[in-house]
Simulated assay, not measured.
Amino acid sequence: MTTAPFSTVVTALRTAGCVFAEDEARLLIDEATTPAQLDALVERRVSGEPLEYILGWVAFCGLRIAVDPGVFVPRQRTEFLVHEAAALSRRGAVVLDLCCGSGALGIALAAEVDDVELYAADIEPSAVACARRNLASIGGRVFEGDLFDPLPPDLRGRVGILICNTPYVPSAAIGMMPPEARDYEPHITLDGGTDGLDVQRRVADAAGEWLAPGGHLLVEVSEEQAPHAVEIFATHGLIARIAESEEFFATVVIATQPTAR
């Protein structure tokens, strides 16, 4: 930890447009061991690099989750999805974290529900490497590939909780995102196609094969997208509803596999 003036760091961050300059300054000061290192960290943040890449971790659901450069940074609003999934889970649940990124959602859910059998998958090799490190201590298995493709066949029909933070930003809106997202995170983790729901359509098309009877699928969407997402999942035989949180400014669609098909 360096003793550089707190106000100096705050001013630099605030000038660069960091909304939570004071909080970020404390984290960067705690991370640095010399004034020169602090200067370098602040310079990286001022240039727009995500704070989480600089620190090497993200705070999520009260946990520190390792996150590498080039891996999607889980948003605080997505904690609502985890809480909703936990409320639907039981001890020993089979959990699949699809489009897992760093594996944050699966790790957080495992911290709330005892003895889950955790699987995760992502198409990005850097995300898979990061998730494997994060999930190793809890015995989670991480697979590399497109959506359900790399999963073991014996998982079909067994998934009780499918958490899937798919990309849902409409393609035309990517350019309006904050620089730390659009310039540093892979666009494949952000871009959901014309209306933002292309990946969810692909998930909905196959989810029924993987969910257990009565199993639940949870995805995050915008408030405007939610009714359309409900229709997508309903078209594929799932019973869908919308959950919203003013606290987290989050909207989640929960789709349930009927107990009899």
Rank of each mutant, 00 (worst) to 15 (best):
260 A>H: 10
54 I>D: 10
102 S>W: 06
255 A>S: 12
214 G>C: 08
13 L>K: 06
242 I>M: 06
179 P>K: 12
8 T>R: 12
179 P>R: 13
169 V>K: 12
151 L>V: 00
15 T>W: 01
247 E>S: 13
66 A>M: 03
119 Y>M: 00
4 A>S: 15
138 I>T: 14
58 V>W: 03
71 V>I: 09
114 D>T: 12
44 R>D: 10
141 R>S: 13
134 N>M: 04
254 I>D: 05
42 V>M: 06
137 S>A: 15
206 A>H: 11
134 N>A: 05
3 T>P: 02
91 R>G: 00
242 I>W: 05
88 L>N: 13
250 A>G: 10
247 E>V: 14
237 G>M: 11
45 R>V: 03
114 D>W: 07
13 L>V: 06
25 A>I: 14
26 R>G: 12
33 T>P: 01
17 G>M: 15
187 H>D: 07
133 R>I: 00
128 V>K: 00
13 L>A: 13
214 G>L: 06
129 A>L: 05
214 G>T: 04
186 P>W: 01
227 P>Y: 10
69 P>H: 05
112 E>V: 04
44 R>L: 08
162 L>C: 07
172 A>C: 05
87 A>T: 15
135 L>V: 06
122 D>E: 14
194 T>F: 01
116 V>S: 09
20 F>M: 06
114 D>V: 07
199 V>H: 02
